[in-house]
């Protein structure tokens, strides 16, 4: 029973990993571009949630939505202000631009919020739910379920709607997309907005359950990168499976080996997997 409890807890956190990894995989799928500032979007989502709760009050639905909207706008602004200009440049310029962006965002957060760990004040989401003998903390449960639904929603947006179809069209063939009347810039800005927005939302969901400081972005960025690599670059369902797996592996290694080893185990498995299956678990060679 304890083991099941551990696995379910891991899967709930894994669902949140899946949500913010989906954004990273979307950017990669759209423009073969690795965003090294993605973890910082998650971190900013956490602070956006904190500011909304502190200034406006309101429940989880409000601050999660606010974090998503603020980060969506930031993502689109970053596309027009930075990404668009380095997209045609050499690979090194692309890597350095988002690496620099990550540093700017992280240290701006240090400057504004200090390096201290903070957490959300008690919200409506507290307490523990007992389901069939499993004890589930409500914040984790709500975050996991919401993240699962939102990741599925992002997948449906891409595969079932006209806008998703236009996004994928630009990803596959920019010129052909222009010929049918699509403005690639708008679609790419939308992709950056969706990526940052889903990362910010994931951050807000995690803020209900965990304390954080500005440096968490680095850890989340790495987690997102590992998740996307495991799931295969450009695949939202792949990111979902891989996110759940990473969450479960982390929880199990914390349980068996102790909490300080949870990341080491994930990274070691990641290196082993790259060795054996460089295309990722779901990716094709």
């Amino acid at each position: 029973m304890t083991l099941l409890q551990v696995v379910v807890g891991g899967l709930l956190l894994g669902a949140v990993y899946a949500l913010f990894a989906s954004g990273l995989t979307l950017i990669w799928g759209m423009m073969n571009f690795i965003n090294f500032a993605h973890g910082e979007f998650v971190m900013l989502g956490m602070y956006a949630a904190l500011l909304v709760v502190t200034w406006l009050g309101g429940g989880p639905a409000l601050f999660a939505l606010a974090a998503a909207l603020v980060l969506f706008a930031l993502g689109a602004a970053i596309y027009f202000g930075l990404i668009r200009h380095v997209l045609r440049g050499p690979m090194l310029a692309q890597i350095l631009s988002t690496f620099g962006l990550a540093l700017v965002l992280r240290y701006t957060a240090f400057w504004i919020f200090s390096a201290n760990f903070v957490s959300l004040p008690q919200t409506a989401l507290s307490g523990t739910l007992s389901i069939g003998g499993l004890l589930l903390p409500v914040p984790q449960l709500a975050a996991g379920v919401a993240a699962l639904a939102l990741t599925a929603g992002l997948h449906l947006l891409l595969t079932r709607t006209a806008v998703g179809s236009q996004l994928l069209a630009v990803a596959e063939d920019r010129e052909a997309a222009m010929l049918v009347g699509i403005r690639p810039d708008r679609m790419q800005a939308l992709a950056w907005g969706l990526a940052a927005g889903s990362a910010g939302l994931a951050g807000a969901l995690m803020a209900t359950a965990y304390p954080w400081s500005p440096s968490v972005g680095a850890t989340f960025g790495l987690t997102a990168f590992i998740t996307v690599t495991l799931g295969g670059f450009g695949s939202v369902p792949g990111a979902l499976y891989a996110g759940l797996m990473v969450g479960a592996i982390q929880a199990l290694s914390a349980y068996w080996l102790g909490p300080i080893y949870k990341d080491v185990v994930v990274y070691a498995l990641f290196v082993a997997l790259l060795w054996l299956r460089p295309q990722g678990l779901m990716g094709r060679a």
């Binding site: 179809s165 994928l168 069209a169 596959e172 063939d173 010129e175 052909a176 010929l179």
Partner: peptide
């Protein structure tokens, strides 16, 4: 030229 379809859709 080459039709340039969206092959994945």
């Amino acid at each position: 030229e080459g039709w340039r379809l969206f092959h994945g859709q």
